[in-house]
Simulated assay, not measured.
Amino acid sequence: MRISIPTIPHMVSASNAQIISPAAAVERIANFLAPGNVTVLTGAGVSVDSGIRAYRGKDGRYMNPNYNKFICHGLYHFIQIILLTRQRYWSVLRSYIGYPPVRASRPNTTHFALAALQYTSHITKLITQNVDGLHQKSIAHLWDDDTIPNNILELHGTLHRVHCKFGHITTRDVFQDRLSANNPRWREYMDELERTGDQPRTNPDGDVALEGVSYDDFVVPNCPQCTLEGRHNSIQKPEVIFFGESIPKAVKERSYSDVEQCDRLFLVGTTLATYSAFRLLKHALDLRKPVMILNVGPTRADALPGVEKIELASGLIIRDVVRAVM
């Protein structure tokens, strides 16, 4: 099975980014959003100010050249490698240690600004590549649990739910507690991290990487629902789309629909390196919809005609954008 790691094509060298002042950028973005019926697509860049690192820096390259994002799907079902795969994911390298900082993170100015524009219906749909749940947190005090998923689409899934290979779903907090109960030594390590505040930096998908750590003794508990049904099954994963894994058909179709129903597409904090996001941009251009991108550094859209790019950090100007729109 051949897996292509999402990247920005090397041929992208030209940029259509506008070198303008923050005040001019505020005016351009406000004019773009003011008529309403805008679909927004966000990426890891919007969560940087919440303490969750982006994959790429200002030059468009991965900030950690030694970081290998987890590649999975069919691998979960190959018996010969499944034990190592599960241990690596649920231990230090992956989400057991990386999840608590994501859970504790709070929405930043960009999240709240976009939430305000959603509440006023200037933004009618929001599609996010992020799995941290911060967009939902930013508007939870205004919308109920039914309204939020109807207006916010998680293109790549969420870290906050876990499912087993038979489809049983549990919250990530409950599963985190099970992991701690089955791994008291790791729980002590986590307690020490919390006591000292020496928390490793977390990647956008909840990963952390520590060198020189053995995962051999890490225990992944059986799914309790499977146990009640008379089977033993410890193959469980978060509802995150890993590299090499297909986006569910329903999610793909809804993302296309959200683009089709809007009048304009606004992209924030994304390089569009993953094709699942890039194809939404292409779909908007095919439909001759105006497109604007707000991002620092190269993106996959930089050489495309019909894309207006402003190269500024969203956190610097987005609050003023909301004031101008309102």
Results as ranks from 00 to 15, higher is better:
8 I>M: 03
10 H>L: 14
11 M>V: 09
12 V>H: 04
12 V>L: 02
12 V>F: 00
13 S>F: 10
16 N>S: 14
17 A>W: 02
18 Q>D: 06
23 A>N: 08
24 A>C: 08
26 V>A: 00
30 A>Q: 05
31 N>S: 12
31 N>E: 14
32 F>R: 09
33 L>R: 06
44 A>R: 03
45 G>N: 11
46 V>Y: 03
46 V>C: 02
47 S>G: 07
47 S>D: 09
48 V>T: 15
51 G>W: 07
51 G>Y: 10
52 I>E: 09
52 I>W: 04
56 R>S: 00
57 G>Y: 06
57 G>N: 15
58 K>W: 00
62 Y>F: 15
62 Y>G: 10
66 N>I: 09
69 K>F: 02
70 F>W: 13
71 I>V: 15
72 C>T: 15
73 H>G: 04
74 G>R: 13
75 L>I: 06
75 L>P: 03
77 H>D: 15
77 H>L: 15
77 H>Y: 15
79 I>R: 11
82 I>Y: 04
84 L>I: 09
90 W>R: 14
91 S>P: 00
95 S>I: 11
96 Y>G: 09
102 V>C: 09
102 V>D: 06
103 R>V: 03
104 A>G: 02
105 S>K: 10
105 S>L: 10
107 P>M: 10
107 P>D: 09
108 N>M: 04
111 H>L: 05
111 H>I: 06
114 L>N: 01
119 Y>Q: 13
120 T>I: 10
121 S>H: 11
122 H>P: 01
125 K>M: 06
130 N>R: 09
130 N>A: 08
133 G>P: 03
134 L>R: 07
